[in-house]
Design a protein around this nucleic acid. Sequence first.
DNA 1: AATGAATGAGAATTCATTCAT
DNA 2: GATGAATGAATTCTCATTCAT
Lengths: 230, 230, 230, 230
Amino acid sequence: MSMSEELVDHEEAPVSSATGRPLTKRGEATRRRLLEAAELVFAEQGYHEASIVKITERAGIGLGTFYLYFDSKQAIFEALVLDLNRRVRHSMSEAMAGASSRLEAERAGFAGFFRFTAEHPALYRVVREAEFVSPEVLRLHYTRIVEGYEAGLRAAQAAGDVDRGLDPQTTAWALMGMGELIGMRFLLWERDADGKPPAELDPVVFAGMTRIIDNALAPRTGSGDGGKEA
Amino acid sequence: MSMSEELVDHEEAPVSSATGRPLTKRGEATRRRLLEAAELVFAEQGYHEASIVKITERAGIGLGTFYLYFDSKQAIFEALVLDLNRRVRHSMSEAMAGASSRLEAERAGFAGFFRFTAEHPALYRVVREAEFVSPEVLRLHYTRIVEGYEAGLRAAQAAGDVDRGLDPQTTAWALMGMGELIGMRFLLWERDADGKPPAELDPVVFAGMTRIIDNALAPRTGSGDGGKEA
Amino acid sequence: MSMSEELVDHEEAPVSSATGRPLTKRGEATRRRLLEAAELVFAEQGYHEASIVKITERAGIGLGTFYLYFDSKQAIFEALVLDLNRRVRHSMSEAMAGASSRLEAERAGFAGFFRFTAEHPALYRVVREAEFVSPEVLRLHYTRIVEGYEAGLRAAQAAGDVDRGLDPQTTAWALMGMGELIGMRFLLWERDADGKPPAELDPVVFAGMTRIIDNALAPRTGSGDGGKEA
Amino acid sequence: MSMSEELVDHEEAPVSSATGRPLTKRGEATRRRLLEAAELVFAEQGYHEASIVKITERAGIGLGTFYLYFDSKQAIFEALVLDLNRRVRHSMSEAMAGASSRLEAERAGFAGFFRFTAEHPALYRVVREAEFVSPEVLRLHYTRIVEGYEAGLRAAQAAGDVDRGLDPQTTAWALMGMGELIGMRFLLWERDADGKPPAELDPVVFAGMTRIIDNALAPRTGSGDGGKEA
DNA sequence: AATGAATGAGAATTCATTCAT
DNA sequence: GATGAATGAATTCTCATTCAT
């Protein structure tokens, strides 16, 4: 029930689940293959349909070997969510890096998020199942993303780039929710003629999102945000 | 995997799962008790942890009796989602009924949604697990809610109450996403001192949401929505 | 780790392990078949080699059915030991019932014990494996038998039929040990020409045992038991 | 299932399990550490709960190294039983060495046995589990001890120190059984206030045992041993 | 001589579903 | 209509043993 201790954010040397010792190079590779297989299997079948056997078969590894690296199905699930979380945030912040304005950064951040989602449907699917599997990681996942958002919003508000009347925390969760459902609807549910999912969001939808965000965040002209504006 | 045929929207006379005949009054009551028990059990334990035994025990009926009313665990799950979906939409449209403006209606709709969420956490939890259990009902659930939104948005755009630059479909999904994550974060995750979940959204959060929606939807003054505004 | 509550001595209505309700007649029969199968399988293969599948196959019932009656392999093990314990004590006291003297009773008791051992090798084998499986039942088993012995010895000492210099508790354990090892060596290890185990103890051995017991217990003539005898 | 060939009694140069060659001095030490670790682990956890990993960890050597010294888990078990058997017999005969009479020797032998049992609970525990692990060593263990006893009894009977009416073999097994159960009950089950097992038998119990043995073995005065005595 | 990563057969246990009563 | 005993496929996890280093 309790999470493993590896919930810290920083990449740290993974240890053998059996002996507690740090992994050899060979061990590291095996662990990585397991995580990659788990991502695929979880994405295709969901957490509950996935089984250790399916994961190890996909990884091309013996069943028993799994337990040298993870204590349980839940443990690899948590490790995977944390791994994907780290990567999606990396993807987002990289995308936002070159932006010249807050709104542009916002758009870029969403674009990065959607790109990652399209490439890693597992993140999406697995997280939505996580509430009863591992509530702690679920919360950690969302909270970590939201915290970045929130800090950005506060800074932008201070700089006058974002409506000061918005509550940063609420806004951050709201934006997160928008991104999640838009991604689900227009990336994961969408299939082209060949049954392939799209690599990126439909331009109309992306433009639509951009407009909503622009509207929502733009400093209000005229009506003040609690009197602080001229 | 396939949905039962009862995906239609209207309340219709439920039939015995065994004989296919319409239920007697007594049968109706038993079916209702099963659905109520399922709502509680699914909400507390999630779909996979829930078991037929737990549901029938909670309902106070015999295990075998379950199969007189539902073909399978998945069947009651789908029936429950559809039932809750009907009720949440009812709750929302009722709340919006007396509103005098589009924005006010929007706020009222969200308020209705959050109220229902607080009272029926099952809707939330069950839906988030539904992707791998019954993708069809999952989509149906979201789509039905969104369709109402979308129609309202189009009408309001036509009336000039909502920014005509917004894409109604995208906007509807975005608003839905906002509501979902705000509800998750500030209703379902929140516990007061006694460990009880709050009956309604924190006023600050609700005000925050309102501001976001107001911003996002309000017709833009000055800059047009593609030149159509004066 | 903890024993079930049924460690009390008296025959009591067994309950369903799943529902906690008392068993129907059909249920009682199934439970009895499981216990009988378990006795055979445990006797032949020992506790660790025995498996639930082997037991249910022997009983001619489905694997899952086992868990309607017992929580685990350990649970049926404990139930079996307690059941056999009750029966071996019954067998012994019945054998002793008609004896006219203490020494004769002693002999008859051992005879009853050996008869039971020959018919139910499981008791023997299973108990010797029990120390790491279920220490509590192991102790209960020995203690219950010894207590009967001890009480009989005290009474016989008071009546002057048994050497008053003997410590009743120590003596009871010593006699129990004698019986156990003699039974193991001369009943369980012994095979006749056809590979069949003997139905009863070799007369020479039984006579040998009798002599030891007679010697050990008989009141000392001449030398007193600490000066209390005339 | 079959025993290794090392069942012979005499200490002989152990060989590598892998190469079959005699061990170097360093190898000897490793083997000894494995046996010592096995004794501790088997005593604490029993045969089935013990695992090779636990044993090698306790011994402070690598897992794979185990198989350089023993073919299997069963092999080290058998080696351990034989080793302990040799030592307990040594302990007993040493204790009996200086005795001036048969009865005194008997008492001293038991004392030696109990001392060894208190120091090496593994012997006890492991032997009681051995019936299904390795019946041959189990029998060998008991038989070797009993044979010594039996020879002693015959000699003492010839010398008139022990009741000639006793069957030596039966008596030897009976005495062995007494010792086993008394040891189990009053050494292994006993814990002092600190939870520590006692280092030796309670004096009352030991005196009790002595009396039983004295009674059982002492030549009968008056009534003969089947008429052969004068 | 020593090591520990890899393996897979095998065990216990769960639970949706059936069906005789 | 109602019931609950029976079922067995499927899942997770353990551990003795092998073998490349």
